[in-house]
Amino acid sequence: MDVLSQLLGSGVAVGMIYAVIAFGYQLTFATSRTLNFGQGEALMLGALVGLSLVGHMNYWLMLPIVMLFGAVQGAVVERVAVRPAIKSKSEFGWIMATIALGIIFKNVAENIWGHDQLPFPSPVSQTPFTVLGVHMVPMQVMVIGGALLMMLAVELFNRRSIYGKAFVATASDLDAAGLMGINTNLVITFSYALSSMTAAFAGVLVAPITLAGAEMGAVLGLKAFAVAIIGGLNSGVGVIVGGLILGIAETTTAYYISTGYKDVPGLVLLLLVLAVKPAGLFGKTVIKKV
């Protein structure tokens, strides 16, 4: 029982990281029907930039700087890799372009920070504690809280501000949004900035648990992609539930079966969802205009 509750704690924390990266995939998909396949690398860069900064400054000052860095990095990805592909009406060009940029980012990171997994300081105490019978370390709580807060902030922005509504309008009808006076190209760039900012933030959150290194992004990015597909590319609740399912499945499988098989349940689930409900467990078919 004790072990199970620990597994749950870490499963939920890992799951929320998947959820917040998957949420980033949704942001760009909403505005432009494109995904940043370098999302994992945005996370990795966030973690490593954070690591370099945190030696020189307060952790809480480092966080907004890393987020700003992530936003700029995302805007660059959109301008360099996505916009030209959309402009030339190349249907799949953005896939290759975002993957290519991701690889470049990874190579750059290897040259700057090397190939090793580096320890990342935790801003909170390492002493485990118990909430509702679940054993957790404070960093896990911070990961869960931070991820939820990030998604909530974006959601609030979309609902409350006129710019957020412009974002929603662009996502639902690009041409009509343009007629409203909304600069839809800018909104798409912004969605990439927001998406990479979220990933960079997730990188800093997860690094104290996983260690930071140039390799860290690839697997996380892929798993989060699976979560986005499992949960549905347009469902906020979906990515949270999908993230939790995957996170808990992984930690429990690793313990009860074998670490070697920890990725299997999630991928089996992914295959099942694709076969049975391709729009995702919570994916809704968008309301069609009459």
């Binding site: 309008a169 639902s172 009808d173 041409d175 009509a176 949004a177 007629l179 968008v286 309301i287 205009k289």
Partner: peptide
């Protein structure tokens, strides 16, 4: 525009 094009989710 033709076809109304209102934003259905707003």
């Amino acid at each position: 525009p033709e076809g109304r094009r209102v934003f259905p989710t707003l």
